[in-house]
Amino acid sequence: MFSTATLTAARNKLLKLEASWVLSGLLLLEVMLYCLDEFTGPHSFYAPFYVFPVAFSAALLSQRMAVFFVVLSSLARAQVFSQFFQAGSLLLLAFDIVQSMLLYGAIAVLVMTVKSMHQRLLRYAEYLRANVRLMRQQRRNRASIRRALPDDADGIVRLAVSGAQNGDLSEDISNAVLQRTLATAFRQGIVEGQTVRHTWAGGQQKVPVEFWVSIINGRMAGFFMLYGVDNQQGSERELHAMVVADEYRGLGIGAAMTDFFCMHFKNRRLFAACKTGSNMMKMLSRRGFNQFCTAENGYVIIERHN
């Protein structure tokens, strides 16, 4: 496998080689036009054809080379012009050089302007294509989210273990006995919509619980778990855990689940538990979760500020 630096160096070398061939071709064209103009006599006039090396240099080479061909073409035209009219006046010769440079310069500027517009259009088209791909991906991600079923409990536990290994969740989940207990508790919570949790003020209470999963191509790409805040069955919801499978990271699954949580429960007080300085906390802060509530077991509870 070639490194990125090697490929970049090879590409730059190829571009330099192509530019040298273009420069050689345009110089040859310039010489041919001058010879035709010089040796075909006064009855043929090739000055308009100097437009081609000027235009091609402006389109294919650098701005500096375009200026070079503007000057070269102007001098070639003025030299033939002075012989044709046998003009001995330096003022007339200077005037012809200036007007030639203005003409060829205007053509070079026009071509470079069109070239710049074309490049901007290409960049904008690429930007639009990237945004279309992103929007399609976001729609697919949102469409993949549904309420968890009892059969999803084992998959949720596996993702929770993966999240513990990545540092997203508590490492206690790595215990095999606890995993079986969690699978049973999750399955029961999915069916009953309630579970027992440790509250912020201490102690345990039975609160509402919801499990949501993202299913892509028949596989569980991620999940998130919501808790009620207390046993009063209020409308508040806390985003208590969220994990994205390793193979689906970087595809916007976590952002889609967070946005779903914010939009699906937009008329409620929303809280989230996350580690200080984590990517999850940064993602939540961009969505208005920036009001600190409390801290427990290495996690902070933040509230969305409407």
Rank of each mutant, 00 (worst) to 15 (best):
S3I: 04
A10T: 11
N12V: 09
E18N: 12
V22W: 12
G25M: 03
S44T: 13
V51D: 05
S57D: 10
S57C: 09
S73E: 04
R77L: 13
Q83D: 11
T113Q: 14
V114N: 00
K115F: 02
S116G: 06
M117V: 12
Q119E: 14
R120C: 07
Y127K: 12
A130V: 09
V132Y: 14
R142I: 12
S144R: 05
R147D: 10
A148G: 12
P150G: 07
D152W: 01
G167A: 02
S170I: 09
I173C: 05
S174K: 14
A176D: 13
V177M: 09
R180E: 13
A183C: 08
A185N: 10
G189Y: 01
G193I: 08
V196I: 05
G203E: 01
K206T: 15
E210Y: 04
V213F: 02
I215L: 11
G218R: 09
A221K: 08
G222C: 07
G228T: 13
D230S: 11
N231H: 13
N231T: 09
Q232G: 14
E236G: 04
L239M: 00
V243A: 00
R249Q: 11
C262I: 03
N267G: 05
F271G: 11
A272I: 05
A272K: 02
T276G: 06
M280Y: 00
M281R: 04
K282N: 07
M283G: 00
F289G: 02
Q291K: 14
T294S: 08
V300W: 10
E303Q: 13
